[in-house]
């Protein structure tokens, strides 16, 4: 385990020393700030509280932002090291590949959680606004944060896998974006617009936009939770296997 923590610490340090980290942070915080301001505008305009709560974590702005932001976080994880030649050097050491991959994954997840920190500030602000008793709803906020973490865990796992598959950061970022945005869009369309019940069930089961809408209104569903945990674990498992295969060759 010491190996893991040493690697995790190193990854975290690398992450927070990178300028890309703060560029992503700046734009994401502008976006979440705008999202919060927009939902307040909706409330002022007469939208029900339930709708505003769903916009907090499940708004369309965020649904589009996440497939862009996550590849920017994960693109450098493996691809950058491979380009610099340090990854191959790491693989020649007695370090276990799962620890290496998991350390990168959890460091990215920590950074992703930092990105969401201002949301707590917005909620504290909302709690002090005059004329909106019961906003934000504590239970719904908890479920929303839980949902954000689950969606992030899967997105980051996919981004990490793409980074493992490529030796170029840009290629890793574009492929991650293509996979995340493409699947998110397709599954959301299937979930809401498909005429076929079977396709709609598949869409509803996998669409992260729909899940975020549910989490934001306080719903925690075992199907969603298991889907994210299992799929994140599976994608990480594939990432480990890909890295081990590269080590072997």
């Amino acid at each position: 385990m010491n190996e893991f923590f040493a690697l995790f610490k190193k990854e975290l340090k690398t992450c927070f020393l990178s300028p890309v980290t703060y560029i992503v942070m700046f734009f994401f915080w502008v976006l979440t700030g705008a999202n919060f301001f927009w939902l307040l505008w909706q409330l002022i305009g007469g939208s029900p509280l339930s709708v505003a709560m769903q916009m907090m974590f499940g708004g369309p702005l965020l649904a589009i932002a996440l497939p862009i932001v996550v590849p920017l976080i994960t693109m450098r994880l493996v691809a950058e090291e491979r380009k610099q030649g340090t990854f191959e050097a790491l693989l020649t050491t007695p370090l276990q590949v799962p620890f290496l991959v998991l350390a990168k994954y959890f460091s990215a997840l920590i950074y992703y959680m930092v990105l969401w920190l201002p949301a707590i500030a917005y909620l504290l602000m909302a709690g002090k606004l005059p004329g909106v008793p019961g906003f934000p709803d504590g239970g719904a906020v908890l479920a929303g944060i839980f949902g954000v973490m689950l969606v992030g865990s899967l997105y980051i796992a996919i981004g990490l896998l793409m980074s493992c598959l490529s030796s170029n950061q840009i290629v890793a970022a574009i492929s991650s974006f293509a996979v995340l945005f493409g699947t998110a869009l397709t599954l959301t369309l299937l979930a809401y617009n498909s005429q076929s019940p079977s396709l709609r069930i598949i869409g509803q089961y996998y669409s992260s936009y729909k899940h975020m809408m549910d989490f934001s209104r306080g719903i925690v569903d075992s199907r969603m939770v298991l889907m994210y945990i299992c799929n994140s674990a599976w994608v990480l498992f594939v990432a480990i296997k890909v890295t081990e295969a590269k080590k072997g060759s």
Binding site: G138, A140, S222
Partner: peptide, 11 residues
């Protein structure tokens, strides 16, 4: 499925 509504309003 197991579904829980954590919101206060339970709309």
């Amino acid at each position: 499925p197991l579904r829980v509504d954590l919101s206060k309003q339970k709309l």
